[in-house]
Design a protein around this nucleic acid. Structure first.
Length: 238
DNA sequence: CTATACCAAAATTTGTCGCT
DNA sequence: AGCGACAAATTTTGGTATAG
């Protein structure tokens, strides 16, 4: 008898190529209708519907009916984490997607990943902080804030010693799925994101996970972190 | 033999349009 | 507004194919 029937059934659900494609299409956090997921997996709507029913029963996805569409999303951040970890050890075949929509491009550029900054911009900002000695990559998938870094964050209005680490630490290294590099997460990542928004440098786009840089934001990014660009792309990052 | 995946066709559900 | 016809998205059903 298998001593871990639960993980076996979860692994079985993910192991099917069609289901894996649908899950990876959802990993960016967008909810997608069944038809879109069928396209992503390269199967017909009927087949996709059967797969989605299994994923739903297994708790890997949730569904929300809106009109005649049924929007599926991942069953939670733990599912996203599981998939991102799998993707990090496997050569990634990007799921088939419709010619990259404007929305998808915005998400790839900058988005919030469970309340911290991710995407191209998230990675660029994290790397700029490292280059400036504000944070250093430490053991256990954590970033450590240097003494100079504590001072630097303080000048920005973020008092690092006040932050409470969670079980998973204070400044976690989160693997960015689209960029395949780390960005800053954990309580520090969350407060950092809040700070960028409350100072008017970043703006969250309503009803999506996309994030926009404001005109003042671009000025600030260039002055403080040496990051240059315009809406939707980075032109210089050093 | 059994389990699982696939697809075609039919059924179901919901939104939209034109008419009174 | 209420009604019916039609369109679109999705699910259900039934049959076939394939792997172990």
């Amino acid at each position: 008898m298998c001593p871990h029937p639960n993980i076996a059934s979860t692994a079985f659900l993910i192991a099917d190529p069609a289901r894996a494609s649908m899950l990876m299409a959802l990993v960016e956090g967008h909810a997608l209708p069944a038809g879109e997921l069928a396209y992503a997996a390269g199967v017909t709507a009927q087949t996709a519907s059967a797969h989605l029913a299994k994923l739903l029963a297994g708790g890997l996805v949730e569904v929300e009916a809106e009109g005649r569409h049924r929007y599926y999303r991942l069953g939670g951040s733990h599912v996203a984490l599981l998939l991102e970890n799998l993707a990090s050890v496997t050569p990634l075949n990007r799921p088939r997607v419709r010619p990259l929509s404007a929305d998808a491009q915005k998400l790839r550029f900058a988005r919030c990943c469970y309340d911290h900054l991710a995407g191209q911009l998230g990675v660029a900002v994290t790397q700029a902080l490292e280059r400036r000695g504000v944070i250093v990559a430490g053991a256990d998938k954590q970033f450590e804030v240097t003494a100079a870094g504590i001072e630097w964050f303080g000048r920005m209005g973020l008092n690092v010693p006040d932050l409470q680490p969670t079980r998973r630490g204070l400044a976690r290294q989160c693997l960015d799925w689209s960029e395949r590099q780390h960005h800053l997460a954990g309580p520090l990542g969350v407060q950092w994101m809040n700070l960028l928004c409350t100072n008017g440098w970043l703006r969250r786009v309503k009803a999506t996970r996309a994030v926009q840089v404001t005109p003042q934001g671009w000025v600030w990014l260039k002055d403080q972190l040496g990051i240059e660009g315009r809406q939707g792309e980075l032109t210089h990052d050093a």
